[in-house]
Nucleic acid binder design. Structure first.
Lengths: 246, 246
DNA sequence: GCCAAGCGTTGATCCAAGTCAACCACCTGG
DNA sequence: CCAGGTGGTTGACTTGGATCAACGCTTGGC
């Protein structure tokens, strides 16, 4: 179970203390002195080209990854080929937490565009977080946040209708782009309709139709992967007070 | 946001070292000396009656809970009243991990029968797991396992058809009962059809019909909440090689 | 021990989303 | 710069599961 494509492991020392993603990433909430000690943790960066795997289901787990640039999807495959996208990750977010439980990765992580991650050796992370209280606490928060996010996705998949799901998805993206200093209202989708559909438990045609419907009703302007949200509150209303809930 | 029903906090000291759920619970994989130190961690037990809340969404997070006897469901509510059950938990499993990220609980935990939990103060847990490597490692595994489980549920909700979902659900229960020394083939459901439906993203009528269909085809025998699995492999085939997958 | 409420089953009908199909609009690489 | 391929849109039709409805069975609270 090795990646079929050779992967560049850059030998550049990354420094959390120098990173502008600080407040989105693992070091969030830590003191300056604590963060300085983090620099010993992040070994190397690794570049992953579009459509390449960062890791695959079944591979040995050794490290978690913080996204420095670019974005990823994670997915789980069934024997018969069905794919379930379990998440889309952007800069500052952590990949690989699934691997801790069995020491094998349990999902695939694929770059949606040319990307770069910081490699955080897991044994070192455990060691250091026994020494640095702030790191321990923050790491636990990151894991817990992932659990809460997952529960939100279950809500989406289990209890919402197609248009509510897509509206919730767009609002979530908007909020995350905002946190990264980008426009809340205008962004570029990194994933295909098929991938959005898989994530939302819908077929790509249904996603496409929902986009068109939102456009007709003046909520958004879509042009391929470019999205402009014209009526944020309108989308919010769709999620919270759907026209006709199940 | 307080529980409306008074809750008994038993003053009995629990001892992990004496507990027969050891290998299913937080202490799994720890050395004897490590486990002895755990006893200082588990403060008290708490009894929760059927249909009572262990905690509610929005309440302050202070502790996680290990189930000693009984079982629970966790759920998330939407403003308009829609409920999504996010999991069913049984003995040895840990509740409350959702609260770490914001220091507020983000879901509700409700007892499905009269139950008892061990209360694990979270600040103490962090402190002790900085000292006991085995505890730290095991706690991380528990969180990671929850993330992996959640991804499995996403697969279920996003990519499987009604009967596959129910078959997967029964197999999962069977496996967990087995791990607890009960029969893999015969057990009592603690939850209603409506709760199963919510968990699986189906209506209760659909759950009921699927049960009847499984019975007709000789896979199981159902009588209300009592389930006997007659053909485990048949159920497995349903999940892995569905007659007609999406 | 009885009875009402909650839970479960089954049938008839409906509809949201899936499926199938045709076509369009971009990139992308030669 | 053009050709082929991938990704996206739209329409027609189908269908799995939801909805609505009626009824039967436990069960637990008095």
């Amino acid at each position: 179970m090795r990646a079929t494509v050779p992967i560049t492991v850059a030998d550049i020392k990354s420094a959390c203390s120098q990173c502008n993603l600080l407040e989105l990433c693992l070091p969030f909430g830590m003191s300056e002195t604590e963060i300085n000690r983090l620099d010993e943790l992040v070994g190397a960066r690794r570049k992953v080209k579009r459509n390449q795997h960062l890791y695959r289901s079944g591979e040995d787990f050794e490290a978690i990854y913080a996204i420095r640039t670019g974005s990823f999807k994670t997915d789980v495959l069934l024997e018969d080929g069905r794919e379930q996208v379990t998440g889309f990750q952007m800069t500052g977010e952590i990949l690989g937490l699934d691997g801790i439980s069995t020491e094998l990765h349990s999902c695939n992580a694929v770059a949606l565009e040319d990307s770069e991650v910081c490699v955080i050796a897991y044994d070192k992370l455990e060691e250091l977080s026994r020494q640095i209280e702030g790191l321990q606490h923050q790491f636990h928060k990151v894991m817990s946040k992932e659990i809460v996010r997952d529960h939100g996705v279950m809500m989406l998949l289990g209890s919402m209708r197609a248009e509510e799901r897509l509206a919730a998805f767009l609002l979530n993206l908007s909020q995350r782009f905002t946190a990264r200093g980008f426009s809340p209202a205008e962004f570029h989708l990194r994933m295909t309709r098929d991938e959005i559909g898989s994530y939302l438990g819908l077929k790509l045609e249904t996603v496409s139709r929902a986009f068109s419907k939102f456009q007709e009703s003046g909520l958004i302007a879509v042009q391929q992967k470019h999205i402009r949200i014209a009526d944020l509150d309108g989308l919010r209303r769709l999620v919270h007070h759907p026209v006709n809930s199940r």
